[in-house]
């Protein structure tokens, strides 16, 4: 029963969404079912956010209560979650500090704490890319050498200083890189991977709809 019901639901929902593509929404029941199902999905999606809030609270509360290693971080996480969430849940009619409009506590925390912190994390990519490139980009074989040369050309092509340098070698060199590397070799490889991955995804979806693949439910 625990497996059959989800498999039946997956089969019916998958079938309706797959078949409805081939029918006009205003003329058939299947076509009308599709938007209905999609609205359900967005509603269910909203409810699942509570699951996350419960999990994060339970895991971190347990860590603090049992004084687990690094419990201080858990305490900070709990404080951050509630300081950010509670004022935004209260109605803004009570105070302009509540809700999520401009000038609210939530907005202030988001603009001046959350946003710069996230941008900093993303900015760290520059450091990591440099160190990974330095460590991994070695001309160990013929293939690696080709990769290295192509990467160097593309890196030069993507920035004005590099482009000026490429133009000093030949005026049309940046255009050639765009045509032959980006729209040639790169595109062919990307297409190969995209087609392969799309087929893999379609095959997996089919296995799920037909109930052959059940490992995602813990079965099989």
């Amino acid at each position: 029963m625990r497996t059959t019901v989800p498999v039946v639901i997956a089969f019916l929902s998958g079938l309706v969404l797959a078949v409805s593509i081939f029918f006009r929404p205003d003329k058939t029941i299947i076509g009308q079912l599709e938007p209905e199902l999609l609205v359900w999905v967005t509603i269910i999606g909203g409810f699942t956010l509570f699951l996350g809030a419960v999990s994060i609270t339970r895991v971190n509360f347990n860590a603090v209560q049992r004084r687990k290693k690094g419990w201080g971080y858990s305490l900070l996480t709990l404080i951050s979650v509630f300081v950010m969430a509670l004022p935004s849940l209260l109605p803004s009619t009570w105070s302009p500090l509540f809700g999520d409009a401009e000038g609210s506590i939530y907005d202030w925390l988001f603009q001046y704490l959350d946003k710069p912190m996230m941008a900093t994390m993303f900015g760290m990519l520059a450091f990591y890319i440099a160190s990974a490139a330095y460590r991994a980009f070695r001309a160990r074989s013929a293939e690696a050498t080709i990769l290295l040369l192509t990467a160097t050309l593309v890196m030069l092509w993507r920035v004005p200083m590099g482009e000026a340098f490429l133009r000093s070698i030949h005026t049309a060199l940046p255009e050639w890189i765009n045509t032959y590397v980006m729209n040639g070799v790169n595109m062919a490889v990307q297409r190969g991977i995209i087609i392969g991955a799309a087929l893999g995804a379609a095959s997996m979806s089919l296995r799920i709809i037909l109930g052959i693949e059940r490992t995602y439910m813990g079965k099989g």
Partner: peptide, 18 residues
């Protein structure tokens, strides 16, 4: 400009590493 210099630095680092 920052992006230009950064790309050139990475190329330099790769060259040095090799």
């Amino acid at each position: 400009d920052a992006q230009s210099l950064m790309h050139l630095l990475i190329i330099g680092l790769v060259l040095m590493g090799n």
